[in-house]
């Protein structure tokens, strides 16, 4: 189950290091990729609030959660929920820590090859290698507000969990504004990011559960 968490985090990180409404085919994909990669290389830290909506076909309304996200190169991540309850995930180099109320669970990613592979995926994403053709089939679109990338997994592991991923990038700074992760059942999770800060100072202490 922690693999699921890691895969989801990898997707989220990927989206940050990169980003359907009246979307048209993207005119200059090469330029978009180039600027995206440059933006990822220039980004050393990311700090953002987020609101998450989970859609399940049999529920009449989405489940809303709110939280905060922090990332620091090369491999420090804090993904924290405040509502509807507190839940904290920390990725610190090869250690994954999850805090649920008073319970803290620690996992060593080095001890598990599958976890290590996902961890590598996160790191590669942060380094700007997010548009990985070995992992996804990609479709590039745009409108006046967003660059849009649709990712369809080709990697066998990803295909077990995801039908597709939609990424919406801000046209100004190439940061992600919205991400939609679609499950095999067509249920999906949408995360909207706001109050984004790039390259702000984030102390390493933020990436521990204490």
């Amino acid at each position: 189950m922690n693999k699921l968490i890691l895969i989801s985090l990898a997707v989220l990180i990927s989206s940050f290091c990169l980003a359907q409404d009246n979307l048209q085919p993207m005119k200059d994909v090469a330029s978009f990729k180039e600027k995206l990669e440059a933006s990822a290389k220039e980004t050393t830290t990311i700090d953002s609030d987020f609101t998450q909506y989970k859609y399940l076909s049999f529920l009449s309304e989405e489940i809303e959660s709110k939280g905060h996200f922090s990332f620091k190169k090369d491999n420090l991540l804090r993904w924290e929920y405040f509502e509807p309850f507190e839940y904290l995930i920390i990725l610190n180099d090869s250690k994954l820590m999850i805090k649920d109320e008073e319970d803290v669970s620690n996992f060593d990613l080095d001890a598990n090859q599958a976890f290590q592979k996902i961890n590598d995926m996160i790191v590669n994403s942060v380094q700007g290698n997010v548009l990985d053709e070995a992992m996804y089939d990609m479709t590039f679109k745009e409108n006046t507000d967003y660059y849009f990338v649709e990712l369809i997994p080709v990697d066998e592991k990803m295909k077990e969990y995801m039908q597709g991923i939609h990424l919406y990038f801000d046209r100004g700074d190439y940061t992600v504004s919205k991400i939609k992760m679609i499950e095999l059942s067509a249920d999906y999770t949408t995360i909207k990011f706001y109050n984004k800060k790039l390259n702000a100072e984030i102390p390493n202490e933020r990436f521990s559960v204490n």
């Binding site: 699921l4 968490i5 989801s8 049999f58 529920l59 995930i89 992760m181």
Partner: peptide
Amino acid sequence: KFGGLLLVKLLEDGSIRLTLTPQVGPK
């Protein structure tokens, strides 16, 4: 240990749907 959200829906036809999903990731 594992945490998540359990969603329970009582449907009009008398059936009950139950889904467990982590906060992060697919169900």
